[in-house]
Write a protein that binds this DNA or RNA. Structure first.
Lengths: 180, 180
DNA sequence: ACAACTGCTTTCAAAACGCAATCAGTTATC
DNA sequence: GATAACTGATTGCGTTTTGAAAGCAGTTGT
């Protein structure tokens, strides 16, 4: 036993868990990027997280119950990190944060398309996404037979389409900057 | 010019602004507690913010455009801090964070009643609250003639009712701990 | 004149951060 | 069966951020 909480306010307690520069980034990559392994989170981190920070955040999120950890059968040293129900229910928080950031901050077009689609989809889409995540991370049965790709795949596809469009524009507008 | 962003991701950019232990606490107190002055924020901070941290956070939030600062006519040294539209539109984010914290963290009953009411009220209540905040912080005209107290006052009233109930329970259950 | 109050700074220790190197065990390659 | 690559971390160390207490100059009420 060590730490007393600063207050019992729900906002404060949430900040005590995810109120730092990296925790939400890690959770975002697990949630939207389907990163489940240490190296995966480390090497594909868009923001370049350091390995000691990543290890520390995974440990803390694990202790708080936001994620869980399991052995990967394919590799004795490999660990699979999963979102818990507690972590999965952060989807609406991410949706709101993403919507706010997209509206007010200098986001890149390609990276904000996911956030805008998720916000526009509203609670119905968030619920569908959370169901997908429960299947992937908790091993539950799909509540409906999947008649189309999951939410993350659809968001990813929209992202890649914007990327392709942007690169086409970039290539036609100034191909001299593309040489190796 | 000094800082490059870690990435153009909306979630990352939001974290770069409010992803620390105190920024959201300050904004919460301005929004829900109607704290508008430095000393007000400092002395009535439930979590006990230090004056240098408060000064720094106000400066940063000001630079990012989340709040604004104006002279208080009643005192030449006094400054009034206000939420900007950018800050006011954090209401849904706070609502979601509050709802998540209330569900998953060891919140105190009294302090979580506001969060639960705000979450249950949904977008309609958030819009009403944002309208209230625009009147108070931006000086706009009420979109509707106020036929009842503002959202914050109603939330505060519910909070005080829970407090009164809890104290009554506490007093009847163990008055021996109340002696000075 | 004096005390209380205003936003805010200074001081200095502690904690967090960030980078690189490293580690011990596991697996794939040759 | 050596060796190289990969696994989830840990260690060392210098820099940056944070935090608590005290202090400060100007303003106001008494």
């Amino acid at each position: 036993m060590k730490e007393a909480h600063r207050s019992g306010c729900p906002i404060n307690l949430t900040i005590e868990i995810v109120g730092d520069k990296w925790s939400l980034i890690v959770l975002r990559d697990m949630m939207f990027g389907n990163r489940r392994h240490f190296r995966d989170l480390l090497n594909h981190s868009m923001e370049g997280i350091a390995s000691n920070i990543l290890a520390d955040r995974l440990k803390r999120l694990l202790a708080e119950g936001v994620i869980s950890k399991a052995d990967d059968p394919s590799h004795k040293q490999k660990a699979i990190y999963s979102l818990t129900e507690m972590g999965i229910e952060l989807v609406p928080v991410f949706a709101m944060i993403g919507a706010w950031g997209s509206k007010w901050l200098p986001v890149s077009d390609a990276l904000s398309i996911r956030a805008r689609l998720l916000a526009e989809g509203g609670p119905a889409l968030w619920d569908e996404f959370m169901d997908d995540l429960r299947v992937e991370h908790l091993g539950t049965e799909p509540s409906q037979p999947p008649d189309r790709p999951g939410v993350r795949v659809r968001l990813q596809k929209a992202f890649e389409e914007v990327m392709a469009r942007d690169e086409a524009w970039s290539a036609s507008a100034g191909s001299e900057t593309e040489e190796a």
